[in-house]
């Protein structure tokens, strides 16, 4: 099979919460408890679990948006957790993220051209003209128009905003894209459009996705492999086929049982 493009070994992340009367006490919550994953090049790894299972923490820790307590994240032979800021910035070109809420994740005061082109600017790629051309091409690629570059986020619908978020993530030609519930906030018709777009782009650009979701029906349509998380731990992992047809763990079985619409149709 294909090689791993991004892998993480024994990730641990603990949050400290104030607790007890007046918050004098503290409790430790293990958001990631010895989590190891591997994303194969050109494939999609889905992370499923309920709220509080640690799936979003995993995404943030992989991209070093949050420091980890221990463990390592290996990308292109380097341990991201050990890199200094400037080395990390360089490597982040290859690691991008698409967020859940297309309403909250775009700066309302920036034009689409600035939002999508910011990555190019930060990394000093191309002249002003070249950057704008790239932005226009990227917008057209995700199903918007070059004219949309002049608009502000509020002038778009939820699905269109998610397309802007995708354009922003892909303009630097990344290798790995972390998608944190990218279709949860969308209508089912728009959800289908975005899922198909993500699949097409994966094929064209050779992307690898880490796809975080709580919707097991969506997983079936986009992922090659799955990890199931519960309370910060990986409960089960394997190929989509294996997990859906023969779930081994009680927790996975319970999740699959709870998918609405299983008993009818």
């Amino acid at each position: 099979m294909s090689d791993s493009i991004l892998s993480a070994h024994h990730l641990v992340k603990t949050y400290t919460q104030r607790s007890g009367r007046f918050g004098f006490g503290t409790t430790q919550v293990k958001a990631l408890d010895n989590v190891s994953i591997k994303i194969k090049a050109g494939t999609t790894l889905a992370v499923v679990g309920e709220s509080g299972s640690g799936k979003s923490t995993l995404a943030r820790c992989l991209l070093q948006l949050q420091p980890i307590d221990s463990g390592e994240v290996i990308f292109q032979g380097q341990n991201l957790a050990k890199l200094d800021k400037s080395a990390l910035r360089d490597i982040r070109k290859n690691l991008q993220m698409i967020f859940q809420d297309p309403f909250a994740s775009l700066n309302p005061r920036m034009r689409v051209s600035e939002i999508v082109g910011e990555g190019l600017l930060v990394h000093g790629i191309g002249s002003v003209k070249e950057r704008l051309l790239q932005v226009h091409q990227m917008l057209e690629r995700v199903g918007l128009t070059a004219a949309d570059a002049q608009k502000y986020p509020h002038q778009f619908s939820g699905g269109q905003r998610q397309r802007i978020g995708i354009a922003r993530a892909l303009i630097l030609q990344p290798k790995v894209v972390v998608c944190d519930e990218p279709v949860s906030a969308l209508d089912v018709s728009v959800q289908a459009q975005i899922l198909l777009l993500l699949k097409e782009l994966q094929h064209e650009m050779g992307l690898s996705y880490l796809f975080i979701t709580h919707d097991l029906r969506v997983v079936r349509h986009i992922a090659n492999d799955i990890i199931v998380m519960n309370k910060g731990q990986v409960v089960e992992q394997g190929s989509v086929e294996n997990i859906y047809n023969a779930p081994q763990q009680a927790y996975t079985q319970q999740l699959l049982q709870a998918i609405p619409g299983r008993k009818a149709a």
Partner: peptide, 11 residues
């Protein structure tokens, strides 16, 4: 058309 957008568990 709406039903064609709905992902199914069987994939």
């Amino acid at each position: 058309a709406l039903l064609d957008c709905v992902p199914d568990v069987q994939g």
